[in-house]
Design a protein around this nucleic acid. Structure first.
Ligand SMILES: [Mn+2]
Ligand SMILES: [Mn+2]
Ligand SMILES: [Zn+2]
Ligand SMILES: [Zn+2]
Lengths: 133, 133
DNA sequence: CAATAAACTTAGAATAATTCTAAATTAATA
DNA sequence: TATTAATTTAGAATTATTCTAAGTTTATTG
C-alpha cells in the first residue's frame, strides 16, 4: 500500500463508496483528524454522509489494518493513515500530532524486559512535549 | 515516597481526609482501578464519599505527580500508584494491567529519533498482548 | 435474470464516563 | 475571631461513541 494510494483495496473488506471517501479524506488530511473532523471535511463534497457512517467506515478500516486509532488522554479518538509501525509525538504548543518512525533495527526489548513467551499484539508509544520552532 | 507510604504528603497539596483515603485505597489496590472502582471500594468503609470527590481527589493527586492516569483505548481511565517511570502491559487474556519498568540505562532515544531541542514532558508506552501462564 | 440473503448506511435515540454548577462545609489566613 | 480560599457534594449537563431499526445496496443463488 503506497502512501498516496487512495484506491485502497483490502481482501475481505467491501470497499464501498463511503469507505473509499473516508479513506481518501484521511489520506488528504494526514494530521490525525477525529471522526467528526473527517465528517466535517466531507460536508461540502459530493459525498457527504452521516457521522455514524464515518464511525462505521473508520471501524472497518481499523479492523482491516488500513488505519490506526490514536488516543491521547480522553480527547476524541483520532485516526492515522500511516499503517506502518510508528510512535506519536503530541506537540503541546501547536496541538498537532506528528508521526515518528522507529530507528532501523530498534526493538521494544531495548527499552523493557518482557517475560519469555510474551506475545505482543499492539504497541503504542505516545510522547508529549514541545519542538523548537 | 516509599512504595508502601500511605501517608502521602506533597508540598502545595492540601492533604484532606478524602484525598488521603483515595490514595490509601489506590495503594491497597495496585491493579490500576478506575475511578468508579475506587469509589466502590470505599463504599463500605468508614469514609464513603461521592464519585465527584473521587474524581477531584484523583485529579489533584495526578496534578501533583503522586498518581498516574492510564488510558487504554476508550476504556474508563485507570489510576496507577506507581509514580516512577514505567510502561504498561495490558494482558488480553486476563484483562489485567502490569507495570513494566524500563531497563536500567535505557532511553527513549534508543528507539526513536527526536529533533534537536525537543522537550519531552510525558511518555506513555502501552503494550497489549498475552503472557504465557 | 429474478429471488433471496447478507452487508451497509442512516437518523435519531441511548449510553456512559467525565465535567460542571451551585450550595454547603472545611481549612487556612489575617 | 473574622475573613477568605479551597474542598466536598448531589445532581444536572456534556459529549464522544454506540445502538436500534428501517431503508438501501451489493452479493449470491437458483
Ligand atoms: Mn485535526
Ligand atoms: Mn480493576
Ligand atoms: Zn500516526
Ligand atoms: Zn502503572
Amino acid at each position: 500500500m503506497k502512501a498516496q494510494d487512495h484506491h485502497l483495496q483490502v481482501p475481505g473488506m467491501r470497499m464501498t463508496k463511503q469507505r473509499k471517501e473516508v479513506y481518501r479524506t484521511l489520506m488528504e488530511n494526514q494530521d490525525h483528524p477525529s471522526a467528526s473532523e473527517i465528517h466535517n471535511l466531507m460536508k461540502d463534497t459530493e459525498s457527504p454522509m452521516s457521522l455514524a457512517t464515518v464511525y462505521n467506515c473508520l471501524e472497518a478500516l481499523v479492523e482491516h489494518g488500513a488505519v490506526k486509532q490514536v488516543n491521547i488522554d480522553r480527547e476524541p479518538t483520532r485516526y492515522c493513515q500511516n499503517s506502518t509501525p510508528h510512535a506519536h509525538f503530541h506537540d503541546q504548543s501547536t496541538g498537532t500530532i506528528h508521526d515518528i518512525t522507529f530507528k532501523p533495527g530498534a526493538s521494544l526489548t531495548d527499552l523493557i524486559e518482557l517475560p519469555k513467551g510474551t506475545e505482543v499484539t499492539n504497541l503504542e508509544i505516545s510522547i508529549k512535549g514541545t519542538i523548537p520552532s
